[in-house]
Protein backbone atom coordinates (compact mmCIF):
# COMPACT_ATOMS: atom_id res chain seq x y z
CA UNK A 1 0.00 0.00 0.00
CA UNK A 2 1.14 3.55 0.47
CA UNK A 3 4.26 4.89 1.94
CA UNK A 4 3.10 7.22 4.68
CA UNK A 5 4.58 10.58 5.27
CA UNK A 6 3.55 10.37 8.88
CA UNK A 7 5.05 6.97 9.54
CA UNK A 8 6.33 6.89 13.08
CA UNK A 9 9.51 5.18 12.06
CA UNK A 10 10.50 7.93 9.65
CA UNK A 11 9.56 10.70 12.05
CA UNK A 12 11.42 8.98 14.89
CA UNK A 13 14.45 8.68 12.61
CA UNK A 14 14.17 12.38 11.75
CA UNK A 15 14.12 13.22 15.45
CA UNK A 16 17.13 10.96 16.03
CA UNK A 17 18.98 12.73 13.24
CA UNK A 18 18.08 16.02 14.92
CA UNK A 19 19.72 14.98 18.18
CA UNK A 20 22.71 13.62 16.22
CA UNK A 21 23.07 16.93 14.39
CA UNK A 22 23.08 18.88 17.64
CA UNK A 23 25.61 16.54 19.28
CA UNK A 24 27.95 16.66 16.27
CA UNK A 25 27.51 20.41 15.92
CA UNK A 26 28.35 21.06 19.57
CA UNK A 27 31.48 18.89 19.21
CA UNK A 28 32.52 20.76 16.07
CA UNK A 29 32.03 24.17 17.70
CA UNK A 30 33.64 23.32 21.03
CA UNK A 31 36.44 21.03 19.88
CA UNK A 32 37.27 21.78 16.22
CA UNK A 33 40.90 20.74 16.70
CA UNK A 34 39.89 17.23 17.77
CA UNK A 35 37.54 16.92 14.83
CA UNK A 36 40.14 18.07 12.30
CA UNK A 37 42.66 15.67 13.82
CA UNK A 38 40.21 12.77 13.55
CA UNK A 39 39.25 13.60 9.98
CA UNK A 40 42.67 14.57 8.63
CA UNK A 41 41.63 18.16 7.99
CA UNK A 42 44.32 20.03 9.92
CA UNK A 43 44.17 23.77 9.41
CA UNK A 44 40.46 23.87 8.69
CA UNK A 45 39.29 24.50 12.25
CA UNK A 46 37.31 27.62 11.36
CA UNK A 47 35.52 25.81 8.57
CA UNK A 48 34.66 22.92 10.90
CA UNK A 49 33.30 25.36 13.51
CA UNK A 50 31.06 26.93 10.89
CA UNK A 51 29.87 23.44 9.90
CA UNK A 52 29.11 22.90 13.58
CA UNK A 53 26.86 25.95 13.65
CA UNK A 54 25.10 24.58 10.55
CA UNK A 55 24.61 21.21 12.26
CA UNK A 56 23.16 22.82 15.40
CA UNK A 57 20.72 24.95 13.40
CA UNK A 58 19.66 21.92 11.35
CA UNK A 59 19.24 19.84 14.50
CA UNK A 60 17.03 22.44 16.15
CA UNK A 61 15.04 22.68 12.91
CA UNK A 62 14.52 18.93 12.82
CA UNK A 63 13.35 18.79 16.41
CA UNK A 64 11.03 21.77 16.30
CA UNK A 65 9.59 21.85 12.76
CA UNK A 66 6.04 20.61 12.29
CA UNK A 67 7.18 18.95 9.06
CA UNK A 68 10.82 17.82 9.32
CA UNK A 69 11.07 16.90 5.61
CA UNK A 70 12.81 20.10 4.37
CA UNK A 71 15.26 19.95 7.25
CA UNK A 72 16.15 16.34 6.40
CA UNK A 73 16.81 17.41 2.80
CA UNK A 74 18.84 20.24 4.33
CA UNK A 75 20.95 17.60 6.06
CA UNK A 76 21.45 15.87 2.70
CA UNK A 77 22.77 19.17 1.30
CA UNK A 78 25.07 19.49 4.30
CA UNK A 79 26.30 15.94 3.73
CA UNK A 80 27.26 16.90 0.18
CA UNK A 81 29.24 19.84 1.55
CA UNK A 82 30.96 17.60 4.12
CA UNK A 83 31.78 15.00 1.47
CA UNK A 84 33.29 17.67 -0.77
CA UNK A 85 35.45 18.93 2.09
CA UNK A 86 36.56 15.41 3.02
CA UNK A 87 37.28 14.57 -0.63
CA UNK A 88 39.72 17.46 -0.63
CA UNK A 89 41.23 15.93 2.51
CA UNK A 90 41.61 12.56 0.79
CA UNK A 91 43.90 14.25 -1.70
CA UNK A 92 45.97 15.64 1.17
CA UNK A 93 48.67 14.18 3.44
CA UNK A 94 46.25 12.45 5.88
CA UNK A 95 44.29 10.62 3.25
CA UNK A 96 43.65 7.54 5.43
CA UNK A 97 41.81 9.49 8.16
CA UNK A 98 39.96 11.61 5.64
CA UNK A 99 39.02 8.47 3.70
CA UNK A 100 37.51 6.80 6.76
CA UNK A 101 35.59 9.99 7.60
CA UNK A 102 34.44 10.20 3.97
CA UNK A 103 33.01 6.66 4.09
CA UNK A 104 31.29 7.32 7.44
CA UNK A 105 29.73 10.51 6.09
CA UNK A 106 28.61 8.61 2.99
CA UNK A 107 26.77 6.15 5.26
CA UNK A 108 25.11 8.99 7.18
CA UNK A 109 24.13 10.64 3.89
CA UNK A 110 22.47 7.39 2.79
CA UNK A 111 20.53 7.36 6.07
CA UNK A 112 19.45 10.98 5.53
CA UNK A 113 18.26 10.25 1.99
CA UNK A 114 16.37 7.15 3.19
CA UNK A 115 14.69 9.22 5.92
CA UNK A 116 13.71 11.99 3.47
CA UNK A 117 12.20 9.44 1.07
CA UNK A 118 10.33 7.69 3.88
CA UNK A 119 8.73 10.99 4.82
CA UNK A 120 7.12 11.30 1.38
CA UNK A 121 3.37 11.57 1.02
CA UNK A 122 1.30 8.43 0.35
CA UNK A 123 0.05 7.70 -3.14
CA UNK A 124 -3.27 9.40 -3.98
CA UNK A 125 -4.88 6.10 -5.07
CA UNK A 126 -4.26 4.52 -1.67
CA UNK A 127 -5.66 7.58 0.09
CA UNK A 128 -8.86 7.36 -1.92
CA UNK A 129 -9.62 3.93 -0.47
CA UNK A 130 -9.43 5.36 3.06
CA UNK A 131 -11.78 8.17 2.14
CA UNK A 132 -14.43 5.56 1.31
CA UNK A 133 -14.19 3.83 4.70
CA UNK A 134 -16.96 5.51 6.63
CA UNK A 135 -18.66 2.48 8.19
CA UNK A 136 -21.91 4.40 7.87
CA UNK A 137 -24.81 3.52 5.56
CA UNK A 138 -25.39 7.14 4.50
CA UNK A 139 -23.23 10.26 4.23
CA UNK A 140 -22.08 11.41 7.69
CA UNK A 141 -24.32 14.47 7.60
CA UNK A 142 -27.35 12.22 7.25
CA UNK A 143 -26.23 10.05 10.16
CA UNK A 144 -25.73 12.91 12.62
CA UNK A 145 -27.87 12.18 15.66
CA UNK A 146 -29.00 8.76 14.40
CA UNK A 147 -28.36 7.40 17.89
CA UNK A 148 -30.02 10.29 19.70
CA UNK A 149 -32.51 7.78 21.10
CA UNK A 150 -29.67 6.68 23.37
CA UNK A 151 -30.23 7.79 26.96
CA UNK A 152 -26.98 8.77 28.67
CA UNK A 153 -26.91 7.04 32.07
CA UNK A 154 -27.24 9.37 35.05
CA UNK A 155 -23.72 8.63 36.27
CA UNK A 156 -22.28 9.67 32.87
CA UNK A 157 -24.05 13.01 32.59
CA UNK A 158 -22.33 16.35 32.95
CA UNK A 159 -22.98 17.64 36.47
CA UNK A 160 -26.09 19.79 36.39
CA UNK A 161 -24.23 22.77 37.84
CA UNK A 162 -21.82 22.76 34.89
CA UNK A 163 -24.43 22.69 32.13
CA UNK A 164 -24.96 25.89 30.14
CA UNK A 165 -28.04 27.76 31.28
CA UNK A 166 -29.90 27.27 27.98
CA UNK A 167 -29.54 23.48 28.32
CA UNK A 168 -30.80 23.56 31.89
CA UNK A 169 -33.89 25.33 30.72
CA UNK A 170 -34.33 22.69 27.98
Amino acid sequence: MSRTRGSNQALALAQGLGWFSIALGVAEVLAPHRITRATGLHGHERLISSYGVREIVTGIGLLTAKDPTPWVWGRVGGDALDLGTLAAGVAGPERERSGIAFLMTLGIAALDVACALALRRPLPAAMASFRRRSGLPKPPGAMRGAASDFVVPADFRTPEALRPLNEKAG
Binding site: S2, T4, F130, R131, R133, S134, L136, G141, R144
Partner: peptide, 11 residues
Protein backbone atom coordinates in the same frame (compact mmCIF):
# COMPACT_ATOMS: atom_id res chain seq x y z
CA UNK B 1 -2.68 10.83 6.23
CA UNK B 2 -4.69 7.61 5.85
CA UNK B 3 -6.03 7.91 9.40
CA UNK B 4 -7.05 11.50 8.74
CA UNK B 5 -8.72 10.37 5.49
CA UNK B 6 -10.67 7.71 7.37
CA UNK B 7 -11.66 10.30 9.99
CA UNK B 8 -13.00 12.58 7.24
CA UNK B 9 -14.97 9.64 5.85
CA UNK B 10 -16.60 9.37 9.27
CA UNK B 11 -17.68 12.99 9.20
Amino acid sequence: PERLAMAEAGG
